[in-house]
């Protein structure tokens, strides 16, 4: 599988850190449009201590967080490409490209995700209105779809010249 971004490169792009960096690798990337990422789930994750003491299940909201972090990578690299094209790359702080999550819609959790699973995360950017963008998301374990839905994200009001 082609490796587009390692965990270290991801850490250089988005501000998330342990124990909340939930994206291990980016394997497909079309900046500003779509991406595929991997998150390996291990029993050593801190949240399994409490979720649950006798049955380890990855919290569904954290799968959404993984997807949101992949969205941040796609948006961040998109912003960098735009800045390159505009010749303003030096002034760009990558962390400033990370926006906010504003809506979660029509999300289904099809089966529990447990230690040993490898999440294949997929995000695909849709329509934008002003600062807001709607993103179709899905997560797979092997061939099984485990999560699907739509997340809406917002750029920071101070980021970029548009809006």
């Amino acid at each position: 599988m082609k490796r587009i971004m390692t965990a270290d490169e991801i850490r250089n792009l988005i501000p998330h850190r342990w124990p909340f960096l939930l994206l291990d690798r980016v394997v497909e990337l079309e900046p500003g449009k779509s991406g595929t990422g991997l998150k390996n789930v291990t029993v050593s994750e801190p949240y399994f201590q409490g979720h649950f003491p006798s049955e380890s299940i990855m919290p569904g909201v954290l799968i959404l967080e993984s997807l949101a972090q992949l969205i941040a990578v796609v948006a961040g690299t998109g912003g960098i490409e735009e800045a390159k094209a505009a010749g303003t790359l030096e002034e760009l702080d990558p962390a400033s490209q990370v926006g906010y999550l504003v809506a979660i819609r029509d999300v289904k959790f099809m089966r529990p995700v447990v230690p040993g699973d490898q999440l294949e995360l997929k995000v695909s950017f849709g329509r934008s209105v002003g600062l807001l963008t709607m993103v179709k998301v899905a997560a797979y374990v092997g061939k099984d779809k485990v999560v699907e839905g739509t997340l809406s994200v917002s750029k920071r009001p101070d980021a970029g010249s548009e809006a």
């Binding site: 809506a103 819609r105 329509r127 209105v129 002003g130 807001l132 963008t133 709607m134 809406s152």
Partner: peptide, 25 residues
């Protein structure tokens, strides 16, 4: 609110095939 505007824009496009742009909101 603006979050609904995004959803509404998408469903107007889906249902009627009519595109809304940032400058004709």
């Amino acid at each position: 609110d603006s979050i609904d505007a995004l959803e509404l824009t998408v469903c107007i496009e889906d249902e009627f095939g009519v595109t809304l742009y940032d400058d004709n909101m």
